[in-house]
């Protein structure tokens, strides 16, 4: 029995060391933000078996193409990636073909525009960063591929959602700088992006009512997927790996105890 408790004691020592170090060391330098604490949404992709809601992702893609894509690119996504949103092969071809891309040079040495193919990256609204700045009051609309990862410290998808629904009338007495908008979620409450969403600004193809909350939720989930497309696979494999290691650990504990009984006699 004494050996038993020793095994447990030793395991506890190791476990507590790991926990201690993991909690003490990686202290994130969260910049003290003056924004109000975010309302946490119940995202389906949180948790051990989290997964994306594909209907919501497809609506989010509609919000992105019809609203965000006017200014923001997503240069790490390809149209073929939309298959993961539950679109069929033919639908992806059709969705890609709604866009035109520059290609070339052809046999005559000329550049030409053609319909986008599933293998193309999402088209960019501006030919380059300088053009994007000129068109946007000298502010560069950032690429959205990894926006949720960039904003991980501010809350990730929760932050995107809060930003989408955070446009308010500036309180009395506060003066906004030229070209800035009041947003409760953004640092300093001033953001250069004009309010992108209005009630019913788009018609969802599945007939869902396009409220600002709905669009904000869907586009936030879409961006969460875009930043971390392997999430579902990762969590699925992770559970199996941990179960396997757990079983292996039980075998190893039995083996170790069996071996060490001889050393103590």
């Amino acid at each position: 029995m004494k050996k038993n408790t020793r095994v447990i004691k030793n395991a506890l020592i190791i476990a507590s060391c790991i926990v201690l170090l993991l909690t003490i060391l990686p202290i994130k330098s969260n910049a003290a933000s003056e924004t109000s604490p975010l309302e946490k949404q119940s995202w389906p992709f949180k948790g051990i078996l989290g997964h994306f809601d594909k209907t919501s992702l497809r609506r989010g893609y509609e919000v992105y193409t019809q609203v965000c894509a006017a200014c923001h690119g997503m240069r790490f996504l390809h149209y073929r990636d939309l298959r993961e949103l539950g679109y069929s092969k033919a639908q992806v071809v059709a969705l890609a073909a709604l866009n035109e891309v520059e290609d070339g040079p052809n046999d005559e040495g000329e550049y030409y525009s053609r319909l986008a193919l599933p293998s193309d990256i999402f088209i960019s609204p501006f030919p380059n960063d300088a053009a994007a700045r000129v068109a946007n009051n000298n502010v560069l609309p950032p690429d959205l591929s990894l926006m949720v990862a960039e904003k991980a410290a501010q809350g990730g998808a929760d932050f995107i959602y809060a930003l989408m629904i955070g446009y308010k009338e500036a309180p009395e007495g506060s003066e906004l700088k030229e070209g800035l908008y009041y947003n409760t979620a953004f640092k300093g409450q001033e953001i250069a992006m004009p309010p992108p969403l209005f009630e019913d600004i788009i018609d969802f193809s599945d007939g869902t009512e396009a409220s600002i909350q709905q669009m904000g939720f869907d586009v936030a989930q879409f961006l969460a997927w875009a930043a971390d497309p392997s999430l579902e696979q990762r969590k699925r494999i992770g559970l199996r790996v941990i179960i396997f290691l757990g079983i292996f650990l039980i075998i190893a504990i039995m083996y170790k105890r069996r071996v060490w009984t001889r050393a103590h006699s």
Binding site: L245, F248, I251, M254, Y255, R258, V259, R262
Partner: peptide
């Protein structure tokens, strides 16, 4: 008996390790 069980457990642990390494 004990040594038999020990050997079995050793083999089992080794085999599990091999499966893990292969995976």
């Amino acid at each position: 008996q004990a040594s038999e069980r020990r050997e079995f457990l050793g083999l089992l642990a080794g085999a599990t390790g091999a499966v893990g390494a292969a995976a």
